[in-house]
């Protein structure tokens, strides 16, 4: 499938993404037991969109002849499927052992309170989404969070609030 290079070219339009999902489905429908490829189809969708838009799940239901309620069941069962578009900035809170013993739970709680969202959700303004992470390989700096691809270490509740506010200020510029 000729999609690995998409980052190098212009971003795909929604129509192009949908066409790719359709193409992928058409391919799996030629196999035996095409229903067993549902998860693969959802993965492909998430690769393209960054999450699983419900409109696309409707489309998958039609094309594969699988009830939407069932697709929704599968999409919600696995943690790795995002059900909402990710925020502009993705905050990953490390809950690995080193971070945990140094207060990761408290950091996580502070972020939840500050953003008024739960893990897996996106803030109302679409600026942040929040997800848990296993060891980020920066145990020396524990407790650690990663925002997009930048690591921030030796955090305290106060520091992490300041950090969030920095991103907010930037966004307001």
């Amino acid at each position: 499938m000729a999609t690995q290079t998409q980052e190098l070219t212009a971003p795909l339009t929604d129509e192009q993404k949908l066409a790719q999902v359709r193409e992928f489905i058409a391919e799996v429908m030629t196999h035996e037991h095409p229903d067993s490829y549902l998860i693969a189809v959802l993965h492909r969708t998430q690769e393209l969109y960054g999450y699983l838009p419900t409109e696309v799940m409707d489309e998958i239901a039609q094309e594969m002849g699988i009830p939407t309620a069932h697709i929704w069941g599968v999409a919600t069962f696995y943690h790795y499927f995002n059900l909402a578009p990710p925020g502009k900035h993705v905050i990953s809170v490390c809950l690995g052992t080193a971070c945990y013993v140094r207060g990761a739970a408290q950091i996580l709680q502070t972020i939840k309170d500050e953003l008024k969202i739960d893990v897996g959700d996106v803030t109302e303004d679409g600026l942040f989404s929040l997800q848990p992470a296993r060891c980020l390989g920066a145990c020396g700096l524990a407790p650690v969070v990663m925002i997009d691809d930048k690591i921030h270490g030796e955090l305290t509740p106060k520091k992490v609030t300041q950090l969030i506010n920095q991103y907010r200020k930037q966004a307001n510029k």
Binding site: T54, M57, P67, T68, A69, H70, I71, W72, G73, T76, F77
Partner: peptide, 20 residues
């Protein structure tokens, strides 16, 4: 009709229609 499914997992499993 296929209106219902089981969504989420474990303790959080809920019977619901698509997209809740």
């Amino acid at each position: 009709v296929h209106c219902l499914g089981q969504a989420h997992r474990g303790f959080n499993t809920v019977v619901m229609p698509a997209y809740n």
